[in-house]
Each structure stands twice: as structure tokens, then as C-alpha cells.
Design a binder for these strands. Structure first.
Lengths: 183, 183
DNA sequence: GTTATCATGTAAAGCGTTACATGATTGT
DNA sequence: ACAATCATGTAACGCTTTACATGATAAC
């Protein structure tokens, strides 16, 4: 009953959601889903797949291809599915550490000329808008499907959209606040 | 010009903001400020203070106390202040990785009985409300002060409040969504 | 007496990132 | 020719966390 990092379950869940996928394919999916609330780098993803195979939670299968290199594909075993369910039932540990490098700078930005503080904010806005557009595109795609998997994905995307829009409103507020009385 | 991790600058900025503080005191402040957008564990904070001292970016001073153990206090040097300004001017690297263990579970929650999915959401709401209350308390304290430092802190707290409130709205939505058609 | 606050540290473990490496196929 | 996609891996590094350790004072 040793505890594993959350990322292990993130990958296990992905395999379970997309049985018969290769690491490469899973990485592609992760980049458009997990990446928004639980980033997993490609290297780490491969390492977790190896680990999950060793633990018997997923079963690897070699698939030969003619048009591309051979690949490994994965499916959850019944042990893996049980482990996934068990983990899902455990309460998430306290607030996930949110790391926001923009806020970190803003927190000390009274040491910055006003113009640079402004550009910090507008850079943030640009990135938020891009993320929001990405998420909206994903949402639209998902809302076309009625499976539980797609609906769960849609909900997660919706969380992203709402919080990003709140952050965008904050940028407006912050700009006005600084314009009124810069430091 | 070697690059240092963001946390090094987070601590440097803290020392600069509260000159003459001890590691212990800084840890207390960090828990009510940085923790919301750039968590720094106590152990790490101490290590960074040692590192910053070795680099000459902060100057440590021993202070003897009668009512408590002796302590080290720190102040930024002019080198440190320059380093802080330089870092502030560098653009934050791409989106900070947001890790949300609740969304991670929700993303796979179609494997969960509806009741447990609901309790996942209500647990999230509870934690969000606590955080919001904490942030509001901090905001109020800060809004009583008119220094640039306090105003910057207020802005950062405001970001937290707005995004948390958005997340709370999402919880309502998600509950309605699941109530309408559970999986 | 026991809890809370003050105060600083060490050691181990491992998660996660970045860089490097390889090589076939398909399209322009 | 050159870039893009498919596909998987290794190695090194180091940030970060968790657990462990110590010990004084003040309050209830």
C-alpha cells in the first residue's frame, strides 16, 4: 500500500481513459487536457508508464507498424483499475500549490518602474487570452461528445475558462489601480 | 550571471521587503503571502537565506535575545537589490504550472459513484471558502496601509480572491451539471 | 504538566525538468 | 533538401518536500 505520487495516477487514469494508446499518443492528449491542471512532461510520462508496467497496473503491448517505428501500447489491468478507483476515493491533499511567476513579480513590483509593471500585466493578459482561447476550443470539441469521459473533460476545461476570465478581470482592475496611483 | 531558481528571488524579495527579519519571521510572513502564489517551505527558506548570504546578496547579523534563542537577521545588500531589480525586469517564463488535485480527480471521476463525485466538489468548496476568507482577512489588513509594499500585496491577494470566487461559481455549475445527468 | 511559540538546522529521498540522442517516413 | 511527424529513450541535475532533531521560555 505504498503511496505513489499523484502523477502516477494521472498517467494511470490517462491510460484507462484511452486504452491501447502509445506513450507518444498519451503525451499528445495530456498536452491538451492534463497540462492545464496537472502538467506531465513527456519524459516523466514515459517513466511512469515503465513504472506502471513494472507494478502490473498497466499491461504493455508491442505493436509493429510499417509506416512508422514500432510502438508500445498500454491498457490498464484489473489491478490498475482497482488502484485508480482507490486513489480517486482518497481525499485530495490540501490546496494544490499554485505557482504564479507573474504574481511573484508583482508582489515586489514597487521596485520596478511603472512602465515595466504595466508590461508585466499586459504580458499576463496576452498569455491568459491565449489559454482561454485554447480552452474554449477544447470545450467546443468536447461538448460535441456525450460520453462521461468527454463530459468530465468539459467540466475541467470549464473550470479553466472561468478562473482565467476572473484573472483577466483582475488584470483590468490592477491596471486601473496602478494608473490611479503608480509607485 | 548564472541563473537562480525563482524561489531564490522570492526569498531575496522578502528580505528586501522586511529588512532585519529572521528566517523564522520571514517564514511566518511567507505563509500569509507568498504561500498563495509561490509556496516556500521553511527548510527551503533557510537554505536560500544561507545561499543568499554566501553570494553576498543579503547580509546576516546575529542578534542575541534574552527571552528567546539567538537569531540571525538579514538585510539586502546593494548587490542584492540590483539582482532583485534585474530579475524583476526579466519576463516570467511561460505559464506557471498550476496543479489542482481536485480537477485531476474530477477528470477521471466517471469511475466514481455519483455520491463521491459530489463529496469531491463539496470538499473543494469548503477549502475554497476557507482560502477566500483567509485572503479577505489579509486584504483588509493590507488595505489599511498605504505603502507601495502593502498595495502590491493587496493586488496579489485580490487576484486570489477573484480566482477563488470564480472557482466557487464553477463548483455550483458543476454540481448542477452532475445533478442533471450523473455518470 | 502540557501546549504553544521562538528558533534553526540536517539528512534522505525522489519528483520533475532539460538536454541529448536516434532514426524512419511523409510532405513541400 | 528540409521540415514535420512519429516514436522512445537516457542521463544529469537540482529543486522541493518530509521527517527527524534540539531546546529554551511563557502561558494556562
Amino acid at each position: 500500500m505504498s503511496e505513489h505520487p499523484e502523477t502516477t495516477y494521472a498517467v494511470l487514469g490517462l491510460v484507462d481513459k484511452l486504452p491501447g494508446s502509445s506513450g507518444y499518443e498519451l503525451a499528445g492528449v495530456a498536452a491538451n487536457s492534463l497540462a492545464f491542471f496537472w502538467p506531465v512532461s513527456r519524459t516523466l510520462l514515459y517513466r511512469e508508464l515503465t513504472r506502471l508496467s513494472a507494478m502490473g497496473w498497466v499491461e504493455p503491448t508491442r505493436v509493429e507498424q510499417t509506416h512508422a517505428p514500432s510502438k508500445w501500447t498500454y491498457r490498464t489491468t484489473s489491478d490498475g483499475q482497482r488502484a485508480l478507483s482507490d486513489w480517486l476515493a482518497t481525499p485530495p491533499d490540501s490546496a494544490g500549490s499554485e505557482r504564479n511567476p507573474v504574481l511573484l513579480r508583482l508582489f515586489f513590483s514597487y521596485r520596478l518602474p511603472p512602465e515595466q509593471a504595466r508590461s508585466l500585466l499586459s504580458g499576463y493578459r496576452d498569455r491568459l487570452e491565449m489559454q482561454r482561447d485554447q480552452l474554449n476550443a477544447i470545450s467546443e470539441k468536447l461538448s460535441a461528445t456525450a460520453t462521461p469521459q468527454a463530459r468530465a473533460g468539459w467540466l475541467a476545461a470549464r473550470h479553466g475558462v472561468l478562473t482565467i476570465e476572473a484573472a483577466l478581470l483582475w488584470v483590468d482592475e490592477a491596471e486601473a489601480f496602478l494608473a490611479e496611483a503608480p509607485w
